[in-house]
């Protein structure tokens, strides 16, 4: 029993790490624009394709595998960030002072566009991510863990700590928090608000891009609709943690992942999984409408 629990906790950490990397993008964009970027799940999907093509291109060369892996991550993060910044500039920026509902509908539209564009150009056939790294299985007593699993957890946590430091300790992070609170005053302080908003999109999407590559290592099937479900779960994770709050998104992601792996142990069918997840969401929102770590005080926007 203990082994199964530990085993599932490990799985939960792995799943939660990927959710967290995606949830961060939702929460950062919401924090700065009060916009739920419903295209973010599809941006994650695009990042998986970027990772796939980068990996295929790089694998044909005689580069050490670990270098290929790092390069694949870099390429995916960079291209995903570029796509996100482009979307922000073209689609969201003109709507910054329009009613919020216009921007949300635009976000949904961008998501559909990304899915259908991918479908039209790359076809519905799933692509198989090549295995970039040897997947070694280790046994710790009855516990089994794979090198990919460890890699996902470690890289995700390192990225999250890095991101948290950026937001809390750098001038750019400080500017992000200031812009999130009051754009007008931030600009009067000399903060280039548009550039900070683009930077936020870039960082949030680059992190999702890293998540895309890591996810593809564990579940190497890439298709145009893969972003929908994961996008929703990451979004729910961000809401549970308190959307707009970076640490909250990480917490929410792990909570949701544990719900996902432990529910099938207690309740018979895995269809209960979504039911339990939404129940957790509703309970959190009833008890703390701003999420577990969201600001309770009214926001001046």
């Amino acid at each position: 029993m203990i082994t199964i629990l530990l085993q599932q906790m490990l799985n939960g950490l792995q799943v939660g790490s990927v959710y967290a990397l995606i949830a961060l993008g939702y929460t950062m964009v919401y924090g700065i624009l009060r916009l739920i970027n419903f295209a973010h799940g599809d941006i994650f999907m695009i990042s998986c394709y970027f990772g796939f093509f980068a990996a295929c291109a790089l694998l044909s060369n005689a580069i050490p595998t670990w270098l290929t892996f790092i390069a694949t991550m870099m390429v995916s993060m960079l291209l995903t960030a570029l796509v996100a910044v482009l979307i922000e500039r073209v689609a969201y920026k003109p709507l910054r002072y329009a009613p919020k509902v216009s921007a949300v509908i635009t976000a949904l539209g961008i998501g559909l566009f990304l899915e259908n564009f991918t479908l039209a150009t790359l076809g519905p056939t799933p692509r198989g991510m090549p295995s970039l790294l040897p997947n070694v299985n280790y046994r710790l007593g009855a516990l089994s863990l794979s090198s990919v699993q460890i890699l996902i957890i470690i890289i995700s946590i390192v990225l999250m700590i890095l991101l948290d430091r950026v937001v809390q300790k750098t001038m750019t992070g400080m500017a992000m928090r200031a812009v999130s609170y009051d754009k007008t005053t931030a600009s009067v302080m000399g903060v280039p608000v548009d550039r900070i908003i683009s930077t936020t999109f870039a960082i949030g999407s680059a992190v999702a891009g890293a998540g895309g590559v890591l996810y593809s290592l564990a579940y190497p099937i890439i298709n145009p609709y893969m972003g929908v479900k994961i996008g929703w779960w990451a979004f729910i994770a961000a809401v549970i943690g308190g959307i707009g709050n970076v640490r909250g998104a990480m917490l929410g992601a792990y909570i949701l992942a544990f719900v996902e792996v432990f529910t099938p142990m207690v309740l018979p069918s895995s269809t209960y999984r979504d039911f339990v997840a939404f129940t957790v969401l509703l309970i959190v929102l009833v008890v703390r409408p701003t999420g577990l770590m969201g600001r309770v005080t009214a926001q001046k926007v």
């Binding site: 001038m171 400080m174 500017a175 928090r177 200031a178 999130s180 609170y181 009051d182 007008t184 005053t185 931030a186 009067v188 302080m189 903060v191 600001r295 005080t297 001046k300």
Partner: peptide, 14 residues
Amino acid sequence: GIFANLTVHENLML
């Protein structure tokens, strides 16, 4: 226009 979510020091540095 004080940033309530930033410390006094961060307000100054910004």
